[in-house]
């Protein structure tokens, strides 16, 4: 086989043609593999979805039931004790929560 140094137009043209064909062959092969691979997965997903939906409610039925429940619940109120109590609040003193320490001191004038 000729070394690259001795390549002429004929070798260059063939190399180009073969290279283009090889790029396409490799990538077409990848398309096939990925299609095959994708086909298996989409079929599997479809099978899982159809088995999951068998014996179950339709999406529209679920929507109708949830809307009805929402409307029913929105009319209901919780029973309250009706007793209002004010609890005394007492905070333990701490310099961290001290109001006087949190205020800017007035400038001291002599």
């Amino acid at each position: 086989m000729l070394s690259v140094m001795d390549w002429g137009w004929s070798e260059m043209l063939w190399a180009t043609l073969i290279s283009i064909c090889l790029v396409f062959v490799v990538l077409v092969l990848l398309v096939w593999i990925m299609k095959l691979f994708g086909g298996i997965f989409t079929r599997r997903q479809a099978a899982v979805q159809s088995s999951a939906t068998q014996g179950q409610l339709h999406e529209e039925e679920i929507a109708a039931i949830t809307t009805a429940l929402k409307l029913y619940k929105s009319v209901l109120h919780d029973r309250e004790s009706e007793v209002l109590t004010i609890l005394s609040i007492k905070r333990a003193y701490s310099p961290w929560s001290s109001k006087i320490h949190g205020l800017t001191q007035m400038p001291f004038r002599k």
């Binding site: 390549w7 260059m12 190399a15 283009i20 790029v23 396409f24 990538l27 990848l30 990925m34």
Partner: peptide, 28 residues
Amino acid sequence: PKSFLLGAAAQIGIFVTFLGAYAIGFTP
């Protein structure tokens, strides 16, 4: 996966320029 074909077609520029560069005196 058909996108692979578009990725392959866009490599045409590489090979046409390969010939073009050789034509103006570059080594292979």
